[in-house]
Nucleic acid binder design. Structure first.
Lengths: 249, 249
DNA sequence: GCAAATTTTGTAAAATCGTGCAACTTCCCT
DNA sequence: AGGGAAGTTGCACGATTTTACAAAATTTGC
């Protein structure tokens, strides 16, 4: 791996995630932490990123793009994404919502699989165009500053012309009775439209979000086909969902 | 194996993979590493590739270049963007194409100005959502992996419903007779559509791109309203454009 | 204020680079 | 055809760069 490739990788990661850990990059790229440290220092001098204790952040880092859950439960999200990758097969048409779990999924798509992916999420799209074989179609619209996804009529209209094989739906709260819920009304509208545009809905969520609910409802629990969490499928927390007919992973 | 054949092989390999290792090529072509090193140096001088420690990367990916001319070019782009900012006024509707000059412009928009910006460029959009008052609308479509912008029918269709006050058109080659030209046919289609969706077209370009042309034509010189370069408006290079009726900055 | 994590500094090994040079090929001129 | 000039290639060797490891200094979180 050339040094320039590492630079490339790091700048891209920072751009997408706003934040990277030094140890994570070192492990991912199979080089020593010292090397990454030198890289970060160099990229900082170039002004491409801002180096901080323990890693780096975007040099144009703003509070608006900072979200608490972006740094939370990364291990779990990675586990979930690994499971979700198994549902992909050659040449299928995929729809992906936003959120860090989907971002992780986008990152873990194997290099040799060919897909068409639709997404309204800016970070997910950035990640996808780095993949050699994935054709990425961005669902345009008014961009939400904090969620970094396209919302509103344009996005929903685009979705209405589309039928994907599978939808990966990122974070949201899932409760047996309340169903799938969200805090933001516009996001609810978008996610509803996404569900209608896909043959099959896969919900990716960390177990914390299970048995909790938010203000607005996206759909009933039974409308979800598959549920992926970081837990074993045999975990008692998940039993009620299996009874409802959901496939678990 | 002739030298020109090696050149071809190397340039092609770089184009396809975005990177090559010196040792790999030497082994593959059955010549000494020194020879390949000489080849890489030569191709770098020609600007065909960018040589780095241990191999080479694509020169169009000059994100992390130390070469002075490109640092200069960045200075120029910054100068251009600074001038372009002056054309913005409160609550106007802006259309921005891709390219690093536009990205710089997005970065330099003052924090206290309120705008609506439409763009098909992923990096520009990422930059814009960091701005507190700019409402950003992403023009969706199939994403080009190298230009990182949305292309194709979807994007053009979206544009047809839009009328912006001003269009900032990034890099392209400008020649008095050939007009505004581009290398990529699909980009030409998009830029044409963008021009039709704006009352006024402002071309942002470094002086190097003036009096040169590419394969495909976007429009005639006279269809451009304003031309912004890093040069003084009195520069002789620009005189013919003023005579054509273009406003200079 | 302490323990853990991170950074800095120094060092040594490995990889890569630049240069000079000799052997070889190609081209050009007679 | 032959001879010489010019260019190309592979090798040797010292210089430079890059990398990993280790120990000391610093920062962070509790």
């Amino acid at each position: 791996m050339l040094r320039e490739e590492r630079y490339n990788y790091i700048v891209n990661e920072v751009k997408i995630r706003n934040r990277v850990l030094l140890t994570d990059i070192a492990r991912k790229l199979n080089v020593s932490e010292d090397t990454i440290r030198r890289d970060l220092n160099h990229l900082d001098e170039q002004g491409k990123i801002k180096k901080v204790h323990g890693g780096a952040i975007s040099s144009s880092f703003h509070l608006y793009s900072y979200r608490e859950d972006q740094i939370y439960a990364h291990e779990h999200k990675s586990t979930i994404a690994t499971k979700a990758v198994k549902l992909l097969h050659e040449n299928c048409v995929v729809l992906m919502s936003g959120g860090t779990t989907n971002l992780e999924l986008a990152r873990l798509i194997p290099d040799n699989i060919s897909l068409t992916v639709f997404t309204p999420s800016l970070p997910v799209a950035m990640q996808l165009i780095a993949h050699p074989l994935v054709e990425t179609i961005f669902i345009g619209g008014r961009l939400s500053k904090d969620a970094q996804i396209a919302l509103g009529g344009d996005a929903i209209r685009t979705l209405s012309h589309l039928k994907a094989d599978i939808l990966f739906m990122g974070t949201g709260n899932l409760d047996l009775e309340s169903g799938l819920t969200e805090f933001d009304w516009e996001v609810v509208q978008l996610k509803k439209a996404m569900m209608e545009s896909a043959k099959k809905t896969v919900v990716l969520t960390i177990s914390e979000k299970i048995n909790s609910s938010q203000r607005f409802k996206i759909c009933a629990t039974s409308e979800v086909h598959t549920l992926i969490t970081e837990l074993e499928t045999s975990h008692t927390l998940l039993a009620p969902f299996r009874e409802k007919g959901l496939e678990l992973m």
